[in-house]
């Protein structure tokens, strides 16, 4: 090996290795191409029928966007009355609701009246028991464990809602699209529904599934949760509780649940950027000053133009003659 390397040299050796890799890649490329044209891969139903998130305007979008407390409160009402019967929120505590503008007393009441109690131990007998929630408790899951949840939901597991808005690409828009996206299969595409139905029969919802082209698998085990206008009672002065409005509100609430510090973060970010802008400006100016001497170079333009320089020298000489000497 050593002698071989000596004979062909390091570059010759590299050349052979390079040719080896390229050769294998050419073989792979040709094989793949032949297979591709022999048997063009069929488009999957998920690929063809999945729809991109709907366009929603949320108040918290962009660096200057902030959560709308009234909307979060409405979203919480939707969560409380609709979602919470199946979904828990294990990382959000009742006390966090104070961020939504509720008073500590209101929060205490929400916790105490929550339909699901939290597990505890009976202090006298040591037996398992439950007690009403306190503000320090997290939102309890309606099910004891995953098996119980699946048993109650046709073998589907309602995921925890704490982080759902960050666990899906463009989560808030996705939640809104999903909640408002239940529909008959094959509707709303460029191609006619009958043709699509023939090409993608597998897109039909199976037993206990519901069609929703915004769900990555197209068919979801959760029945449409928000079905009728006015399903959740909104306080006076709030926008009308349409399906779209309730869906947008709960999407905003879940975004807050996933990222409760977003407003603090953006405020801090603006302060940091303003500080850094000043610091950068000053640092840049001192850089310019320090380098002024070293950077000076003759260019045939402006005050350094030889012609201008000559004029200046002349003026200086004249001034010196006239006794108005200029230093330097």
């Amino acid at each position: 090996m050593g002698q071989l390397l000596k004979f062909i040299g390091i570059r010759g050796f590299a050349f052979l290795i390079g040719l080896g890799f390229i050769g294998v890649l050419v073989i792979a490329f040709i094989t793949d191409a032949v297979n591709y044209f022999k048997e063009p891969p069929a488009e999957s139903a998920e690929h063809a029928l999945h729809k991109a998130n709907k366009d929603v305007d949320f108040s918290f979008e962009g660096p200057f966007g902030r959560y709308d407390q009234a909307q979060l409160q409405r979203g919480f009402a939707v969560f409380q009355n609709v979602c919470a019967s199946c979904h828990g929120m294990q990382y959000v505590a009742f006390r966090n609701l104070e961020d939504l503008g509720y008073t500590p007393e209101q929060v205490k009441a929400f916790a105490a009246n929550w339909p699901i109690e939290v597990p505890t131990i009976n202090p006298d007998t040591g037996e398992r028991a439950t007690r009403p929630a306190l503000p320090a408790d997290r939102f309890p899951s309606p099910y004891d464990n995953e098996i119980a949840a699946r048993a109650a939901n046709n073998n589907a597991y309602p995921p925890d809602m704490s982080l759902i808005a960050k666990a899906r690409p463009d989560g808030a828009a996705y939640i809104y699209s999903l909640l408002t996206g239940y529909q008959e299969p094959y509707q709303g595409y460029d191609e006619p529904a009958a043709e699509l139905a023939e090409r993608f029969p597998e897109a039909q919802p199976g037993d206990g599934l519901y069609h929703n082209p915004w769900f990555p698998n197209l068919n979801i085990a959760m029945p449409a949760p928000i079905t009728a206008d006015g399903q959740v009672e909104y306080p006076e002065g709030a926008p009308e509780a349409t399906v779209e409005q309730m869906s947008a509100d709960v999407a905003a609430f879940l975004m807050w649940a996933a990222e409760p510090k977003a407003d603090t973060r953006k405020n801090a970010g603006l302060a940091v950027l303003i500080f850094l802008a000043f610091a950068t400006t000053f640092a840049y100016l001192s850089y310019r000053q320090i380098w002024a001497e070293a950077k000076r170079k003759v260019v045939a333009k402006g005050p350094l133009d030889p012609e201008h320089m000559a004029e200046r020298e002349e003026a200086k000489a004249e001034a010196a003659e006239a006794g108005r000497g200029v230093k330097g």
Binding site: G269, V272, L273, L276, A283, I290
Partner: peptide
């Protein structure tokens, strides 16, 4: 002082880019 000054302002400018992502699109 030449390259400490040059690095100094450039580091701060680059940190602005970092801060923009950190605070607004983390």
């Amino acid at each position: 002082p030449f390259f400490t000054a040059k690095d100094g302002w450039f580091v701060l400018a680059f940190l602005m880019l970092y801060a923009a992502v950190l605070f607004f699109a983390p």
